[in-house]
C-alpha cells in the first residue's frame, strides 16, 4: 500500500464523518478544517483503527502534523506482523 492509497481510503472515512466535504491532501492538518475539532477527531480515530485494522501506540497520533504524516503512521503500523 502506498501513501496515496492510504489517503484515498482515509478520504472515504472522512466523507462519512464530516458533514461538509473535505478534500484530503498530504499537507492538510486539523487546524485547516473548522469541523475537525476534538470531538470529530475521536470519531475519526475510532473509524481509522477499525477500517485499517491497526492499533496506534500511546501518544503517537498526537505527534503527526498533517494527513501525510498520519498516512505514513498508518502504513508503518500496517506493515507490522
Amino acid at each position: 500500500m502506498t501513501q496515496a492509497e492510504v489517503i484515498a481510503q482515509l478520504q472515504t472515512i472522512f466523507d462519512t464523518v464530516f458533514l461538509e466535504p473535505v478534500v484530503l491532501t498530504p499537507a492538510l492538518s486539523a487546524k485547516d478544517v473548522p469541523e475537525w475539532d476534538s470531538l470529530t477527531h475521536i470519531s475519526l480515530m475510532v473509524a481509522v483503527e477499525k477500517s485499517f485494522g491497526v492499533r496506534f501506540r500511546v501518544g503517537e497520533v498526537e505527534n503527526t502534523k498533517n494527513v501525510g504524516e498520519f498516512a505514513d503512521l498508518i502504513l508503518k503500523r500496517k506493515q507490522e506482523p
Partner: peptide, 14 residues
C-alpha cells in the same frame, strides 16, 4: 458500537 453512536451524537450537535 462506540464509533457509530459517537458519530450520531456529533450529527445531533451539528
Amino acid at each position: 458500537d462506540f464509533g457509530e453512536l459517537f458519530l450520531l451524537s456529533s450529527l445531533r450537535k451539528k
